[in-house]
Nucleic acid binder design. Structure first.
Lengths: 188, 188, 188, 188
DNA sequence: CGCTAACCGAGACGGTACGTCAAGTCTTAAC
DNA sequence: GTTAAGACTTGACGTACCGTCTCGGTTAGCG
């Protein structure tokens, strides 16, 4: 049975270090010291640093946003992307995501796990798209996977490269372009 | 004066290790041993592992593709994105790019440098867009920076997450959606 | 808690390397490899090479000779110096002492520590001298510190320069001269 | 032909570094940089750091003191030891000697050379003793080598250990004890 | 008076060892 | 029987100098 005290202290320490020192500044050793917990305790419950950070990230999000269903593609995407871009307002989440993506590049085992989590987020978008397809809002033959890439790609790209500001203000334009692009060449 | 022998041996060793063992498998020590060169020689010319990998990547590309100029946005983007997606056909480049992006997340100093390189690639796209804007192919008020994100974002996202195949075959659809999205709601 | 296995292996390896390769031939890296121990383990318990060698030296001596107390200055000094010169019969100790003295010249931090150890040895002589003074065997006003230098100085000098043989055979003459010199111009 | 400029600059730089940073702070690389001279130039004329420091030491002494000859052992020794202890008044010489003695412990090749230099200094004392023996001032059977150790030993010991002040003020007592000790047992 | 040999600076090179860091595994003892 | 404490191996880091070496660019003095 995982001791709630220890586990919470570890997650809190992880979150604190993430905020203060960035992903690189988070070390299992540092977390253990900060949480006043033995290193072995951390390893008992989390198998690696990225797994720990992933958990800390999930705790920072808490409530799962329900899949939006407004009846139109634009409406659904607006809700979804606005929420997505809102991540940028939370340094902890930004740092966590950037670090996790980095880790996924370096550690194939974690990449697998990370991909699973990413897929769960993509599924939400693919459901939105499926409903839109049913309504005839999508050009026939649209690949939902590549469409999802169009939703997440620019967000992640900007998040990772950091060349420009990121925030919910971008959602409107993003959705406009998405809808236009996905509807296809209207007049043929 | 940098000795050509040493420098080439180092870059070759870096490339070889990248291919064989991935970005994580590249270590300065390993490169030095492989290249039969002293560690200090590597450090003399490259200030860090990412700088070294970046150089090895550049050497693997060599010829700079000229900015395409076909007279239409679709034409230019098709050329550009096809070339971009072709990266996926070279494991060395894929690994290099993934590792460099990872490193940029972990090391702020390198992030800066990496951003510089990214910007140089973005500039090519922004020039294409500027010409398209002059021709009236873009909706007025289009933000070229965000538009560039739409070009690179999906590519990088798929490259980094690895959830689906990547290759020049995607270029056609990508361009179609971009052109549609960027032209805007033509008839209102 | 220091693991006895590791610690003993390290000291044994240090002693072995001292014998085989001299003080210069002792490196932390070499000791670690020889002791089949991680370098960090050596560093955990000894803060530097001289500290390690000092410890190895102490282990090689083990039993502390009791302060001699024969009732006469000549008797005490004979016992003490004989023991002192006997060091020359143990190559390991000779190398250790020469190396430690060398290190004390090069590293001020270690010099401090070394001085402490030297002082502990000097104290033995100063106690002998104090008792002799009580018995009236010393010229009044004799400086015990400088007198101790007269005991240790020639020994160390010959040990370090290596210009002539060193061994317990020298003790008799040394003591004769010391006693004569320290008694002073008694009868004028 | 050795360029006088370069050679002097090197010796001056060595002396300066010796004073400022101690023997350990002298590195061939540092000397070369300081003297604005190529490293290879230093190596051309001095085969090692101790050789260089030895040279710098010799330059700091300049005139060779003539062997004292006052007609009495006490007189000769007083002149000699006073001069000897005066070394302590020159930080450069102190640091040089300490460093050279250290080096002699670590580098057998240099030890040889160093021993030669030491012997030249010992010879002066042995000449003084030979004359004293002729005059009957020494107990018969006195070993001039061990007697010389008695002259130099305490000086070097204090110089190297640094446990107490060193200076010409010590010469008087030292000589008194030497003369007494060397003359032998009053009644004999 | 011009040639050539030496000496010069600059600095790259292969090495060795340093001391540090964090990772992840393992053992011990207490609660 | 879970924990805390913390020692352990491993592997790479980046640094400092070492002593050797090649490279052109002066300078001197010999012929």
């Amino acid at each position: 049975m995982r001791s709630q005290d220890a586990s919470e202290a570890v997650l809190a320490a992880t979150a604190a270090l993430l905020e203060e020192a960035g992903y690189h500044g988070v070390t299992i050793e540092g977390v253990a010291k900060r949480a006043e917990v033995a290193k072995s305790t951390v390893y008992r419950w989390w198998k690696s640093k990225p797994a720990l950070v992933m958990d800390a990230y999930r705790h920072s999000v808490e409530q799962r946003m329900p899949t939006p269903d407004t009846g139109t593609l634009a409406g659904d995407l607006t809700l979804f992307t606005t929420e997505l871009y809102r991540i940028a307002e939370h340094p902890l989440r930004v740092r966590a995501l950037r670090g996790l993506m980095a880790e996924a590049q370096l550690d194939p085992a974690f990449a697998e796990e990370f991909r699973g989590w990413v897929e769960s987020r993509r599924t939400v978008v693919k459901e939105i798209l499926a409903r839109a397809a049913d309504r005839g809002e999508l050009a026939p033959g649209t690949d939902p996977d590549f469409a999802a890439d169009q939703v997440f790609g620019p967000f992640w790209y900007r998040l990772l490269v950091g060349h420009a500001d990121l925030g919910p203000a971008l959602a409107r334009d993003h959705v406009a372009q998405l809808v236009e692009g996905l509807r296809g060449r209207g007049t043929g």
